[in-house]
């Protein structure tokens, strides 16, 4: 890589971690216009920044509010990066997996889901975000339609978490259970319960979802 581009990397990482959207987009545009590849920016700035943000959350320096703001900054810089990626040769190689993401039926909470989406996208996954209050049937139709690897489900409220089970059961009913991995998370869920109802993985937060999703598509470790 051209040495002059490297100077952007540290600055971009810092602005992402400090959720300075304006500066981050400016740096991204500059780097791309001066010849940086989208892949270079993802691997050298976006992914390391995501990791730092995750660590700050883990150690209690950052909280959900910071994750939301970091997520918005990530989303803003991913727009030009993804556009650029589309023009680059070998785009397919970058897709490490396709995920259909939704908050389950009856639940309209979306902060956690949105953060998970941004972290997954920032880590190279293609994410079809179906939004909130999504019935099992529609989620599965979409997963079949886009040939997803993973169905990722979010559920905040304990009164609606039976609808996570609906997705597992509906997949079994349609004979499709083996076609998709199921990842679940959200306030009312836990690892033990996720295992009991037949999900493949459970994650506590955005960084955890990335780790879980990577291991589900054989990119773990």
């Amino acid at each position: 890589m051209v040495p002059r581009l490297i100077k952007y990397i540290e600055n971009l990482k810092q602005t992402l971690v400090e959720y300075d959207t304006e500066k981050a987009v400016e740096l991204t545009d500059k780097a791309l216009s001066e010849g940086a590849s989208a892949r270079f920016l993802i691997s050298e700035a976006i992914l390391p920044a995501t990791k730092i943000i995750g660590e700050k959350y883990e150690t209690g320096e950052y909280f959900l509010s910071e994750l939301v703001l970091c997520g918005e900054t990530l989303q803003a810089v991913m727009k030009p990066i993804l556009e650029h990626l589309g023009k680059e040769v070998g785009k397919k190689e970058e897709e490490i997996g396709k995920i259909v993401l939704a908050t389950v039926e009856g639940d309209i909470h979306d902060i956690g889901k949105n953060i998970v989406r941004l972290f997954l996208q920032g880590s190279g996954f293609t994410v079809e975000d179906m939004g909130v209050d999504m019935p099992a049937g529609k989620i599965i139709d979409k997963a079949v339609d886009v040939k997803a690897d993973i169905i990722a489900l979010s559920c905040l409220m304990s009164v609606t978490r039976d609808h996570v089970k609906d997705v597992v059961e509906e997949l079994e009913k349609r004979g499709l259970r083996k076609d998709f991995k199921i990842l679940v998370g959200g306030r009312s869920t836990n690892e033990k319960w996720a295992g009991q109802i037949g999900c493949d993985k459970w994650a506590a937060d955005g960084p955890g979802a990335v780790e879980a999703a990577r291991s589900l598509v054989g990119r773990g470790g």
Binding site: G106, D107, I108, H109, V132, M157, V159, T160
Partner: peptide
């Protein structure tokens, strides 16, 4: 108001 199964919550949409 939004009925989330049995819970009358606020529809933040």
């Amino acid at each position: 108001n939004y009925w989330s199964k049995h819970m009358p919550i606020v529809d933040t949409r």
